[in-house]
């Protein structure tokens, strides 16, 4: 197990190196002259030359990458082109808000998804199974941003139960309860499409396992049905559910861009969006790098947990 974790950690290094190259290249892939973005189209050639020198754009690509990487490894993500702030100072607090939103969404997605899948599997092929899975199927194909708007329309505009935007109230805001109230709608909107997939996988893996001989044996020994579902079957259904759960966490991290924009949640996704629109490349680079790092870390944790739960997967180092 220790060896597995070590090998898996080592396998992350080349991936992160590749990630850093791609993120670095973002600066150069963007069409148009960087100096025009910074100084406007009317800038004098002298000013352009000065800014090119300051950013090191005249150096070789490799030198630029090396300088950038050294700084990034020291926690220096550069200076935002729009806000005149250190990117790290700008992005880290927002990333924390995103983590709050994504964790809440993940919690809802797993609880709802697992419960729905469990109930559907234990009443397989009944009417309630069909209705439940039908609803999940529709949710799974619903655009996240549209679902968010529908929730806003119902719960914030029509019934006025919950706030539609922001993270804290303008007046007397900031308490834990206040944040929770603001969290409900965006977290639910992000969670439901993922919950649908978790439910499908939970149901499918349960049904597959309930057909196996050792379950039949347990049943014939007179083990209560509830115990079989909760203990015997869960052990073997867990790896598939965990894997899809981990994948969904990554999907949630990408999807929060939409929920954050719709609900004006002050997170990294929202910042990424406004930085893209404002052509603030260093900030875009910083956020993409952070999300990729989080994503790689999540996958790592999922693999390790999986290896712990299901020793058979330990040999499959690369994930294929």
């Amino acid at each position: 197990m220790g060896l597995y974790v070590l090998m898996r950690l080592i396998s992350v290094v080349p991936v992160l190196l590749g990630v850093s190259i791609l993120v670095f290249l973002l600066m150069h892939l963007a069409p148009g002259d960087v100096t025009s973005t910074l100084l406007g189209p009317m800038a004098s050639p002298d000013a352009r030359a000065a800014i090119r020198e300051r950013l090191g754009l005249d150096l070789s690509l490799f030198t630029q990458y090396w300088t950038w990487l050294t700084l990034v490894l020291q926690g220096d993500l550069g200076v935002s082109w729009v806000h005149r702030h250190e990117v790290a100072d700008l992005v880290l607090p927002k990333f924390f808000n995103t983590v709050i939103l994504a964790s809440a969404a993940a919690l809802i997605a797993y609880l709802v998804g697992f419960f729905a899948g469990f109930v559907a599997a234990s009443r397989a092929y009944s009417l309630s199974d069909r209705i439940l899975m039908g609803v999940m199927l529709i949710l799974g194909n619903t655009p996240l941003y549209w679902l968010g708007l529908i929730l806003v329309f119902l719960f914030a505009l029509t019934w006025r139960w919950l706030p539609a935007t922001g993270m804290v109230s303008v007046v007397d805001g900031g308490g834990v309860l206040d944040v929770l109230r603001h969290l409900i709608l965006p977290a639910t909107a992000s969670a439901l499409p993922s919950a649908a997939l978790v439910a499908r996988v939970t149901r499918a893996s349960y049904l597959e396992i309930l057909n196996q001989n050792y379950i039949r044996a347990a049943r014939s020994r007179g083990v209560p049905r509830g115990l079989i579902l909760r203990k015997h079957a869960l052990r073997n259904a867990a790896p598939a559910i965990l894997t899809v759960g981990g994948m969904e966490l990554g999907y949630l991290l990408g999807g929060v861009v939409f929920t954050e924009v719709i609900f004006a949640w002050p997170g990294a996704g929202n910042q990424l969006y406004s930085s893209i629109v404002g052509r603030d490349i260093p900030t875009v680079q910083g956020i993409v790098l952070l999300i990729a790092l989080a994503f790689v870390l999540i996958n790592l944790i999922v693999d390790v947990v999986n290896a712990y739960v299901d020793p058979r997967t330990r040999t499959a180092l690369s994930g294929y």
Binding site: V15, G18, V19, L22, Y251, G254, V257, L272, A292, V296
Partner: peptide
């Protein structure tokens, strides 16, 4: 495959947003 692995370090939606945003 190792080169493709790098893309798996980003959520699919993020790749699409960033590529579309840069162009």
């Amino acid at each position: 495959m190792r080169s493709l692995d790098i893309f798996f370090a980003f959520p699919l939606v993020l790749v699409a947003i960033v590529v579309a945003g840069v162009l």
